[in-house]
Design a protein around this nucleic acid. Sequence first.
RNA 1: GGAGAGGUGCGAGAGCGGUUGAAUCGGGCGGUCUCGAAAACCGUUGUGCCCCAUGGGUACCAAGGGUUCGAAUCCCUUCCUCUCCGCCA
Length: 420
Amino acid sequence: MLDLKYIRENVDVVRKAIAHKREKADVDALLDLDIKRRTIIGEVESARAEQNRATLKIAEMKKAGKETTVAIADMRRLAEEIKQQDDELKVIEDQIYQLLIRIPNIPHESVPVGGEGDNVVLKTWGDPAADFQPLPHYEIAERLGIIDFARASRMSGSFFVSYRGLGARLERALINFMIELHVDKHGYTEILPPFVTKREAMFGTGQLPKLEEDMYRCEIDDLFLIPTAEVPVTNLHREEMLNGDDLPIKYTAYTPCFRREAGAYGKETRGLVRIHQFDKVEMVKFVKPENSWDELESLLQNAEDVLQALELPYRVLTLATGDLSFAAAKCYDIEVYAKGIEKWLEVSSCSNFGDFQARRANIRFRRQRGAKPEYVHTLNGSGLALPRTVIAILENYQTDEGTIKVPTVLQKYMGVDIIK
RNA sequence: GGAGAGGUGCGAGAGCGGUUGAAUCGGGCGGUCUCGAAAACCGUUGUGCCCCAUGGGUACCAAGGGUUCGAAUCCCUUCCUCUCCGCCA
């Protein structure tokens, strides 16, 4: 959410941001309502001031034993008026809020303007070339009996999977490896949060109101299954005043993620590429405003470190404005190369949200005791999403005998050096 | 699931429906004293919004409604915390 005052004073910047992000938001209506709002506030508040004065006078009159019925009758009328204006104000403020929460964050100046085709490849690491054509992961996994697509679909529907034997073990190995890397080497604190949150939490990080259709929801309790650990972990500090000395706060968390992927069924989603439930290790940071751009770079580096340790080829993209998510000011995508299906697959998005989420979730800090509260900046990035990492391992570490070598860093977790 | 208790400022904690933005204590900050420190004493110590803006106004005592001329204080709803009983991984 942007600051209303900021919008009022920077209309053009906001308009441009909306256009570049290919969002729809009615700035004119917002400004209109803002003017109305301020007019009414002026009226209501002077009426209140009068009411407050009168009310003191009545108290004095009573104390002095004077007759107050006339004064009270007058006040009754005034109170009625105030109530009416107040109701009107409330309607307007609600309308303003509804418009406000639909205005996207403003892209950073370094973000290329355009759509998906304008994403910029920032760098490529490792070698995507293969010396033989490996099988797609879904075939090799099926053959080795480490992922069971058919039975998972039978009980839960399509796009759910069940890992088995060393497949399940590989999943756990990756989770442990990533968490330990971020905790031991990158200085993050591990969090194991709830996997279900309330509506307000989804609002805080910006999933709602836009993405309601993309989430699983427990109707009776109005609770949502998290689509990413970003939601519970960022919301840990919702409505809090943090101590400036404690910043930056860096959390990493493993959670399963649930996404309905409504309307996303297509032919490019075979196997593990797009599933309704997947595991992910996430990194979340709360930082001082002046540091957030540096923190974005180190966040990206932390995510890259995972792929480098796994020795998987990848590239980094700077997303163009049109591809940027609603709440992000800037975002890097990391895509791992899968040699079997011959595709670059997104395994991480590292974003700086500036104060956009913090304002919405009301996460602030004070530099020192007694200093003015300021909004923190929040960032998050996957480190990494598991299924596509598994795809890359199954395809890139495949041998021409149809076995899978276990990446060196995972061997101590797997207990074996080959899956056969 | 059943029965209770409670949610007040940075913390603890008070608050007959009318100078309560909120007593008191503690903490923080500033000062006096001191060679320095401690102690003691004095002062100070919230956020948002609006405006004819070095000032004025208004709102906020979990959240939202209601009663009233006037609500932290009374009523209703919701959320959260705690205790006891039951049930359960």
